[in-house]
Design a protein around this nucleic acid. Sequence first.
RNA 1: GGUCUCGUGGCCGAGUGGCUAGGCAGAGCUCUGCAAAAGCUCCUACAGCGGUUCGAAUCCGCUCGAGACCUCCA
Length: 501
Amino acid sequence: MDLFKKYPVSISNTLSGKKEKFEPLNPPFVGMYSCGPTVYSEVHLGNLRTFTAFDVVFRYLTHIGYKVRYVRNITDAGHLTNDAGEGVDRIEERARLEQLEPMEIVQKYTIGFHEVCRIFNILPPTIEPTATGHIVEQIEMVKKIIENGYAYEVNGSVYFDVNKFSEKHKYGELSGRNIEELMDGSRALNRQDEKRNPIDFAIWKGVPPNHIQRWPSPWGEGIPGWHLECSAMGTKYLGKQFDIHGGGMDLKFPHHECEIAQSVGAYGIAPVRYWMHSNMLTVNGEKMSKSKGNSFLPHELFTGSHPLLTKAYAPMAVRFFMLQSHYSSTLDFSNDALNAAEKGYRKLMNALDALKELNHPKTTAINESLKNDLDRLVDECYLSMSDDFNTAKTLAVLFEMSARINDFKSGNQDLGAIDSNTFTHFKNTYINFIQEVLGLREDNAQDEQLLNGLIQMLIDIRKKARTDKNFALSDEIRDDLKAMGVQLKDGKDGTIDYEIE
RNA sequence: GGUCUCGUGGCCGAGUGGCUAGGCAGAGCUCUGCAAAAGCUCCUACAGCGGUUCGAAUCCGCUCGAGACCUCCA
């Protein structure tokens, strides 16, 4: 039986505001889209939280047997910072600043983004389309919206007519807004404004002659509107209606709201069945963002070079830190929290190493209650993840499992007291959840071999010293290693393990 | 100003009507040549006030506090 049938997934659908049973349109296939980065500068940790959240969704759905097509875009076409045609195009701005062609900027930061994803063990999506690679699709979509009467052209730009749209459809359903309030909230149009209504938004924007990024269109040279790419590419690769659309909370309005309007305006059907929004990473209670100047860059984390950090943190400790909270809650970023996460992460990984070394011996007398306990833990891993991808709850279960693992390792508990099927199931679940579902892995894998050899050598010397009762020497070796951050651990049976701090 | 969210033990964070979250820190015990690790035990909270209920951290109301969106942002 497929795991997704045994452990049905529920998702907090931000469209309905309720937790709903997840039923894909065409099981076992799942279509999932999440908004990727605009590649005009380095991604920061806040961005990474969202990518990590949907990485785990992708991983888990895949793990339980769904065939997931996961589309995450790269926004490499510049967009004006507001729809009135004022403001700046960030990619264009950056290009002028660095004296580069916009596509050089885009290339540079796309590569940087991929590098960071690799470091944080964020899997590549199954399709990673770019906005500039889908100008044709976007133009076609604009045409359809015009044909359907929901957009109008002014001076080479095309605007979505929100008022017209709302005569037949709902606008603001996702973000819980109504048009009247939005009108009140927006400033009045000035004389130069091309829009009929302040809440209309550009789906194609004509650009002045000095603008570098530009594409020909039926309305003249210009750039696509900034909400349009997701609609066009989502439709192209996932269909007019697909299962899951994710993104950060701050994209809910206007970005996702506009996506819905465009898709309905073009195809007459709601594009997404389950909307998921991940919450913000905060610093001292405030949203981490570039504009607030409180963002952390990945390399500042690895090197500990940020003024608010007391030390460097490994990427996997940070990933673990993010998984310790639910994606829909805000998560506060601090040294103390990171320190705690680092230790918790190590504990989990130590148990993982121990478990990999464990093999089931001959079964002796079966301990029923132990067997039931292990089966329950396996079950709870799945139930927790199926409950709206509750990674925090899942980690709590994994910690319980690690205690059982350490019992087996130390001999506190006899492995023979359970049958080998139970053990294999337990073992596979622990390994799979940590590595595949949560995407946690050992850091520093490259240097490990060399280091392992060196330390092993010292361990052998120390073993001899202890056999000779030369404790002065054995302690010296242990203490000197400790000073360098290598902690030796003497086992009951004379084996010596170590841990790098 | 409008809309909305949140306020959990020393810290971080799950939990949305009754049953122990978990991690980190702290205390103790076991194991151990010592140390570390590990296991076990303890520290048992839900912003304040009122209400609903047999029973509320969980539902309702008010108060206080924090934050988000309404402009680009994951």
